[in-house]
Computed example of a mutant assay.
Amino acid sequence: IPNSVMIGFVNALAILIFLTQLKHIFGISIATYAFTIITLLIIYLLPQVFTRIPAPLIAIILLTITAILTGADVKTVGDLGDIKRTLPHFLIPDVPFTFETLKIIFPYSLSMAIVGLVESLLTARIVDNATDSFSNKNRESSGQGVANLITGFFGAMGGCAMIGQSVINVRSGATTRLSTFTAGVFLMILILVFGEWVIQIPMPILAGIMVMVSVGTFNWKSFNFIKNAPRTDAVVMLLTVAIVLATDNLALGVVAGVIVSALCFATKISNITVKRSDSADTIYYSISGQIFFVSIDALMNQLDFDVTNKTIYLDFKNAHLWDDSAVNAIDTLIEQFNKKHNTVYLQHLNKDSHKIISALSDINKKHLI
């Protein structure tokens, strides 16, 4: 996935996280504004003098106690829904296992898989940079896939590595995988044992923490990226963000960004240079560049098909044939030259180009020298 698409994905994700928190902050009560501001102050100022306990955890504990004791007019976790204080159990979904069912769920599962994979790979890269380590991305992705297959039979939602949570984890001092396992175990304890307390946590506290996550997730260097990067890369990044925000679909933004980036790349490398030199009855063409479906017209437009009774050498020393469209173009140009009683020879084809010509072309081997 191009880096410009990754930057766009991260920025769009940060903006979506931020926008989803606004409904928990604005238009509710004065106390909601106060709790949000105090949460942000604790998160950003406390680490400057005390780091033994993560600042977000301190904010949650202190402000939740404050809200309970003062009866502050704020919405709580319990206002959003009930927390079932039970362990999940094994369950096979009661749906018909037919092709019709697959057609219904496939678009959603594909979208979730794309988003989950991209976010997991981005998270792995961010954590690698933060911890000065290197992770096996294939192993991480496979582990996520196996976990999703298993947990699906216990009623779990699809999951993936999370940028915001991982950033908080690392900034709070986590250095090994044990921190992730601990987070899962602690979450289970909170639900099963302290569920009655969890539902009393004020939403503005969690909203303030997520605002901090969105600010930390956003790639602030992307403004310099827009200014200094090639124009096509900047457009791809902005397009990815725009599509995600317009559709609320991270997968669509990623897919569109990859496609546009691929088209831009194809355009960049489609420049073909043809140098011609003549001597007596011989014409020598030196061809440089990548020959594939995008660059064929550029190649054809630089050849003179009006010459007659000539020996023509096409030198591919500095060129590469990539696809069947390139082979078809070679067949076409040889045919066009032959119609004017010319003799054509292909020179210095590299190993891969020679292989694809031999496999897909009908030209006589005598043309290859």
Rank of each mutant, 00 (worst) to 15 (best):
I53C: 01
R276S: 15
T232W: 13
D79A: 04
G78W: 13
V258M: 15
P2V: 01
V294E: 03
V5F: 04
G216A: 01
V213T: 12
I17T: 07
Q200V: 01
K75G: 12
L206S: 01
D362T: 10
L87A: 12
G155K: 09
I114T: 02
W220S: 06
G155F: 07
A161Y: 01
S141C: 04
G159S: 15
V344N: 10
A207Q: 11
T247D: 14
D248M: 13
V294G: 00
I126N: 07
W197Y: 13
F90R: 06
Y313A: 06
L349M: 10
K227S: 09
S353A: 05
I92V: 15
I291A: 06
A280Y: 13
A59I: 02
L178T: 08
M162E: 07
H24A: 13
L122I: 11
P88D: 14
V167L: 15
A12F: 03
L333W: 04
I199E: 12
E119Y: 02
I243W: 15
L360M: 10
A14H: 03
L349K: 05
S295P: 04
I312L: 12
V95G: 08
P230T: 00
R85M: 15
K310H: 11
H354N: 15
K317A: 14
E335G: 13
Y313N: 14
D248T: 15
I312D: 09
H354A: 11
Q347P: 02
K75L: 14
L263M: 08
T240Y: 09
F265N: 03
L63M: 09
R177G: 10
Q290P: 00
H354P: 01
N342Y: 05
P96M: 08
T175V: 12
A359D: 15
G208W: 07
V211G: 06
V215R: 10
